[in-house]
Amino acid sequence: MLAVINRGRVVPGRKGGDRNIKKHRRSASFHGIVEYTPWIVARQSRPSRSMSSRENLARNLRSLRTSRGLSQEALAHAAGIDRTYVSALERRKYSISIDRLDRLAEHLGVEPHILLMKNMPADIG
């Protein structure tokens, strides 16, 4: 049975077996034992309004890709990434690393900063 540690208590889960129980490092604190959970990279379900760079990237990526006559699959293959990742970028579901931004920009024939511009120059797209 899968167990989840919730506020210092073990709560039974619905799926899995005992092999799925994760070990947590515990340390003493003023109020007793505190759970230490390592950082987990997770996609954001809904970007906040302050993340205009993500919106700019999505808009510019789609605009440049379609103006070059590339499908999501063709761009992803050329840049060495998954097609679903390109789709998620265009839908503002994921943020992008600098390395991947460089690869996409290279295959679109623009400088990386162009993908993040609020108002992309007309002669580029």
Results as ranks from 00 to 15, higher is better:
residue 51 M to E: 11
residue 44 Q to M: 11
residue 117 M to D: 04
residue 67 S to W: 02
residue 37 T to V: 14
residue 28 A to M: 08
residue 46 R to T: 10
residue 22 K to Y: 05
residue 124 I to V: 15
residue 14 R to A: 12
residue 60 N to V: 13
residue 71 S to H: 09
residue 68 R to K: 15
residue 110 V to R: 08
residue 27 S to G: 13
residue 36 Y to K: 15
residue 64 L to G: 01
residue 110 V to D: 03
residue 15 K to F: 11
residue 56 N to E: 03
residue 113 H to D: 10
residue 28 A to D: 05
residue 124 I to N: 01
residue 44 Q to E: 15
residue 83 R to H: 01
residue 48 S to N: 08
residue 21 I to F: 05
residue 26 R to W: 11
residue 95 S to K: 09
residue 48 S to R: 14
residue 60 N to T: 12
residue 56 N to K: 03
residue 110 V to S: 03
residue 4 V to H: 06
residue 100 R to P: 00
residue 94 Y to F: 10
residue 106 E to Q: 12
residue 102 D to G: 08
residue 93 K to C: 00
residue 47 P to W: 07
residue 65 R to Y: 08
residue 92 R to A: 04
residue 7 R to Q: 13
residue 88 A to C: 05
residue 103 R to G: 03
residue 78 A to L: 12
residue 68 R to E: 09
residue 120 M to E: 05
residue 119 N to D: 15
residue 122 A to K: 15
residue 71 S to V: 10
residue 33 I to L: 14
residue 76 A to S: 07
residue 112 P to L: 05
residue 112 P to W: 09
residue 86 V to C: 01
residue 124 I to E: 02
residue 48 S to V: 09
residue 69 G to N: 06
residue 15 K to R: 13
residue 49 R to K: 13
residue 75 L to N: 02
residue 83 R to I: 00
residue 16 G to I: 04
residue 13 G to C: 07
residue 69 G to Y: 06
residue 24 H to C: 08
residue 10 V to R: 10
residue 68 R to V: 04
residue 15 K to A: 08
residue 69 G to A: 07
residue 74 A to I: 07
residue 74 A to S: 15
residue 62 R to F: 05
residue 61 L to T: 05
residue 59 R to F: 08
residue 77 H to T: 10
residue 53 S to R: 14
residue 118 K to E: 15
residue 72 Q to E: 11
residue 96 I to V: 15
residue 51 M to P: 00
residue 24 H to K: 11
residue 63 S to E: 12
residue 124 I to T: 11
residue 119 N to K: 13
residue 8 G to C: 06
residue 68 R to H: 13
residue 26 R to I: 14
residue 78 A to E: 12
residue 17 G to F: 01
residue 123 D to K: 10
residue 16 G to R: 08
residue 73 E to I: 09
residue 66 T to V: 14
residue 118 K to S: 13
residue 40 I to V: 13
residue 74 A to M: 10
residue 35 E to H: 06
residue 70 L to T: 04
residue 116 L to K: 09
residue 2 L to H: 05
residue 42 A to P: 00
residue 59 R to W: 02
residue 116 L to M: 15
residue 70 L to D: 05
residue 101 L to P: 03
residue 90 E to Y: 03
residue 95 S to D: 09
residue 108 L to P: 01
residue 67 S to I: 00
residue 77 H to N: 06
residue 97 S to E: 04
residue 99 D to K: 10
residue 114 I to H: 11
residue 120 M to Q: 08
residue 105 A to G: 10
residue 112 P to E: 08
residue 78 A to Y: 01
residue 33 I to G: 06
residue 11 V to S: 04
residue 63 S to K: 14
